[in-house]
Each structure stands twice: as structure tokens, then as C-alpha cells.
Design a protein around this nucleic acid. Structure first.
Length: 493
RNA sequence: GGCGCGGUACCCAAGUGGUAAGGGAGAGGUCUGCAAAACCUUUAUACGUGAGUUCGAUUCUCACCCGCGCCUCCA
């Protein structure tokens, strides 16, 4: 069964098929780098990452482009306040964003930056003006004339017919022909960043960068355009207007939007005190894998209630999956069992069906846990054979190619953020929990294995006091020991 | 006000016109030198409230209550 996705443009769930062969060209709106990324941002980026990963797993080739908006009003304002130029100001946050995304195992798409495409944007605007689709105002700004694009409102399902200059005309923008006309290019203001261009000095408006960069990289028509739900209007609506009126072709065919999340049941906001960057959470001791798992556990079109209790539950879920994989590395008798082979097959099928169904990640999780429980029970009963392990691992891998939480590099990623906190004046925010997790990275695998050999020897000699002492020592170093029938296993806290 | 989404057990959360996935937490048990892990049993006469359609609704319709989103650059 093919992938079915909700398309904001049609308002329906549709079968997703690329325009050309098996190659998907997708563009995702990335961050505006004026601050550290918060978990709301990352909800969207995790959703897009899951889409990206699943498209690939489904056999598609992928050309995935994401922009970084490194110039806008807020950046200009903040940079001015900080007394640095725009590039200096954004460099820090760009770097942080990419690090945070990597901590969450978000695969890095091809990245394009607004400030590297100023000339192309100006040319694009010049072409719009030539066609009478845009106009220049007295101060040197340029606006798009929405009256020239009859399809305006088709994405956000708004009817702008008859909406002439209404009551909400912005007094600062009296020069516009219509209140809805949006800025393509803003004339320079004194002391603000501005660029010379074929259409005069100034800086680009917000929407133009995505039209220019997406078409440059992906062509005038491409498969899929993604972003947070807030971008539907006006950002994506405006991209469609300026792009399609210029090329006469359909811009993106599929529009994918992730819903906003709630934090502790309320809209996240700084004033409500429930505003968290990824780094805030890591400093409190929450693992990136727990955060990713929680963000991924609610299908992208549903409102996700992000809670600290949920974060702990997610951590427990991830741990259970990791324990299971560890358990499969034990020794089992030769042979294979029909039950396990078919369990793995069924699970693989359920995973595909769940994700084909508009990326139903909650159902995919249910499928993998059903398998884990059944396989664990089989291990307890001694019914698992050596040849059952590869198919079970394959199903687990199939799951993890999408969810990406099984490989434990949490301590490493968290250490990175702790180092940042130390150098950024936030060392006081490093929680004991974070210190504890990081400390588990202090011992190397070899060192741990060596101590475990000593522990095993003591145990074999029934010197329990000595064995327990070594275990306690490792526990104190945030290494968790499990002594089982299949041998001694260990993992980092 | 306009348009749209949602309200499922202690928490998170799938789902279906025929009587409720999964995870976490709690309780009891099995295993075990102890611990950990794992497994088993158990926790919704019930899916916001009221009415309607139907042989039958949590699932469809309507009303109401509550939460949330967009409607000038917040993912």
C-alpha cells in the first residue's frame, strides 16, 4: 500500500506520488535564527524528519532542502541591540540549531540561507514587476499585488474576494494598493542592514526567500513543501501567490503542516512560564532520545501535550526498547521457530501500514511493543532460537530507521550541551541529573568490561560481597548492571 | 466575529457503525544469592454533556460545555 498523507492544499488525505519517477523533491521551512530552538520548533522538525526518513524507507530518492532565515526584523533588531552585525548575531544560533537538531537525530537536509540569495531574490522581484505582479512604492519598497492572483487563499481556505481595503489597514503601509498586498522587499531604514541590488537598496521580505530558494534547488514545480501550521497563512499562501503567478505552474503539489504542541496543557509562552528550549530540558537532565520519542509519539497532525511526566514515560519506553535489543544479543540455541519468524514479519507489515496511514506513529509504536512483549515472553520460555534473532532485529531496525532512539549517544550529546552551559554563563543550570548521566561517559567500554569480568569471577566463586561491591561501584558511576541467564549485560544510565 | 482541530482509564495516547491498541504508573505474582531486567494477572459496562438517526454509536447528525489553532512575519 502506498503512503497516504494529508495535503493541506486539498484538505484531504491523498496518496503521495512524486511528480517524477521515484524521486521526491521536498522543501521545508527551517528556523529563523534569532534565539535557541524551543521544543515547539523541534516538534515540527522531528515531524518533517520522520516524513523524510519514511519516504526514504519506502524506497524514494530524496532531495530535501531546508532554509535558514538569517535575516528578518527580529534579527535586525536584536543584532542592533547587541551591537553586532546580522551575521555575527545569527552565527551562534545557527550553530546551536544544527547541534540541537543533531542531538535529536534529525537528519540534516541540504541547507540554504536567505542572506546568500539576496541577488536572486531581487531578480525574482524584478521579474514580478515586469509582469505587473508587483509594484514599487515611493520609499523604495516592493509589494506583491494579490489582486493579480485569483487563487489567493486556496491553501488557507480563505475567501478574499470582496475583501477590499478593510478596517484593518495598517497606517504605516498606506502606500499599498490593497491592505492584503505583502512586502517583497523593504526599503532600507537608517542603521539597519541593507543590500544593494538590481531593484535598489533594501532587504528582502520574509516570503520571497522560500520561493526563490526552493525553485532554484528543486525546480518551478516540486513535490512537497512542509512547515509548522502557523505558516499556512500568510507565509505559504504568499509563496504560492508569488511563485505561481510568475511561473504559471503549480508550485508545491503537497503541503505538509505539523500541528503546534501544548506544554502542560497550555499554549507554550514565555509569560506562562512553560517555554522551554531543547537546551533547557537537557540541562534539567532529560535525554534527547526521550524528547525525540515523546515528540514522535503523537501523530504530527494532532495537538501534542508535552509534559514532564510524559517525558519520563517516554524515557521508560525507550529504555524498554533498548533493553530488548540488548537482550537479543544473548546466546540462543541453534535453529529457528516459526512463531518468531512470523511475528517479525507481521510486525514489519504493521509498521509499514501504520506509517503509510498518514504517518501514524502511535500505531507504529504499538506494533513494535507488541513484538517486544511477545519476543520477551518467548525468551523467558526458552523458545527463541538463534535464527530468530536476525528477523526480530530487522523489524526493530525498521522501527528505528524512523524513530531513531535506540542508539544511545545521549550522554555524549548532553555533555556537549553541558559544555555550552559552562561557557555561556549557565553552569548553575546544570542539574544533578545531568551530571549523573554525563558521568556515565567517564568510564570507557573497555574499563567497564574489565570490571565486569572481575565481578563475574567473584560471583562464580560465590564471593557475593566482592561481586556486589563491584556492582555498587559501577552503579555509582551510572552504569547499570543486569545479571541474567543469558549472561551479564550492562548499559549506561 | 469568520474558518478549522480536538475532548478516550491515574498520566500520555491509537482506533472502529456491532460493544475499547500501545506505553507509563499502581497492585499482586513468577523468576532470581541479592539487585536489575523480563514475563503473567489486574486497573474504562465505557470513549466531554444532552438529544437524534440506526437492529445497534465511542465511532454518523444536531445542540451545548470545555481546550486549542489561524485570521499582519510564533514551528
Amino acid at each position: 500500500m502506498p503512503l497516504r498523507l494529508f495535503n493541506t492544499l486539498s484538505g484531504k488525505i491523498e496518496e503521495f506520488r512524486p511528480l517524477v519517477d521515484n524521486e521526491v523533491r521536498m522543501y521545508a521551512c527551517g528556523p529563523t535564527v534569532y534565539d535557541y530552538g524551543h521544543i515547539g520548533n523541534f516538534r515540527t522538525f522531528v515531524a518533517v524528519d520522520i516524513l523524510r526518513r519514511y519516504l526514504r524507507q519506502s524506497g524514494h530518492k530524496l532531495h530535501h532542502v531546508m532554509n535558514i532565515t538569517d535575516v528578518d526584523d527580529k534579527i535586525i533588531r536584536n543584532a542592533a541591540q547587541a551591537g553586532v552585525n546580522v551575521h555575527q548575531y545569527t552565527a551562534k544560533y545557527q550553530k546551536a540549531f544544527l547541534e540541537d537538531a543533531a542531538a535529536l537525530h534529525i537528519e540534516e537536509p541540504q541547507i540554504t540561507r536567505a542572506t546568500e540569495h539576496i541577488a536572486q531574490m531581487a531578480e525574482f522581484i524584478a521579474r514580478l514587476v515586469e509582469k505587473g505582479l508587483a509594484y514599487k512604492t515611493e520609499d523604495g519598497s516592493y509589494y506583491f499585488r494579490i489582486a493579480k492572483f485569483p487563487g489567493y487563499g486556496k491553501l488557507s481556505k480563505r475567501d478574499f474576494a470582496g475583501m477590499e481595503n478593510g478596517a484593518r489597514v495598517d497606517v504605516d503601509e498606506y502606500e499599498k494598493d490593497n491592505a492584503r498586498d505583502f512586502a517583497l522587499w523593504k526599503a532600507p531604514k537608517s542603521g539597519e542592514a541593507s543590500w544593494e541590488s538590481v531593484i535598489g537598496p533594501g532587504r528582502p521580505g520574509w516570503h520571497i526567500e522560500c520561493s526563490v530558494m526552493s525553485m532554484q534547488e528543486l525546480g518551478e514545480s516540486f513535490d512537497l513543501h512542509a512547515g509548522g501550521e502557523d505558516l499556512i497563512f500568510p507565509h505559504h499562501e504568499n509563496e504560492i501567490a508569488q511563485s505561481e503567478s510568475l511561473t504559471g505552474k503549480q508550485f508545491a503539489h503537497f503541503w505538509f503542516h505539523a500541528r503546534f504542541l501544548l506544554v502542560e496543557g497550555e499554549k507554550m509562552s514565555k509569560s506562562a512560564g512553560n517555554f522551554f528550549t531543547l537546551r533547557d530540558l537537557v540541562l534539567k537532565g532529560h535525554k534527547p532520545s526521550s524528547i525525540r520519542y515523546l515528540l514522535a509519539s503523537v501523530p504530527y497532525r494532532h495537538q501534542l501535550n508535552f509534559t514532564f511526566e510524559g517525558l519520563q514515560q517516554a524515557a521508560a519506553s525507550v529504555e524498554r526498547l533498548r533493553n530488548f535489543r540488548l537482550r537479543l544479543s544473548g546466546n540462543f540455541p541453534d535453529g529457528s521457530s516459526l512463531a518468531m519468524t512470523s511475528l517479525a514479519e507481521q510486525t514489519s507489515k504493521r509498521l509499514r501500514e501504520s506509517l503509510d496511514d498518514d504517518l501514524n506513529t502511535a500505531q507504529a509504536q504499538a506494533a513494535i511493543f507488541d513484538m517486544v512483549r511477545a519476543a520477551n515472553a518467548a525468551i523467558d520460555e526458552g523458545e527463541i532460537k538463534k535464527d530468530d534473532v536476525p528477523p526480530l532485529l530487522a523489524a526493530l531496525d525498521q522501527f528505528d530507521e524512523i524513530f531513531a532512539v535506540l542508539n544511545d549517544d545521549d550522554a555524549e550529546k548532553m555533555q556537549y550541551i553541558a559544555e555550552w552551559a559552562n561557557s555561556d554563563g549557565r553552569e548553575k543550570d546544570i542539574s544533578p541529573a545531568l551530571r549523573d548521566i554525563i558521568s556515565s561517559a567517564a568510564l570507557s567500554d573497555d574499563q567497564v568490561n574489565q570490571r565486569i569480568e572481575q565481578m563475574k569471577a567473584a560471583r562464580a566463586a560465590k564471593k557475593y560481597a566482592e561481586s556486589d561491591a563491584i556492582r555498587a561501584e559501577l552503579t555509582a558511576a551510572a552504569i547499570i548492571i543486569e545479571q541474567t541467564k543469558e549472561g551479564v549485560r550492562w548499559r549506561r544510565k
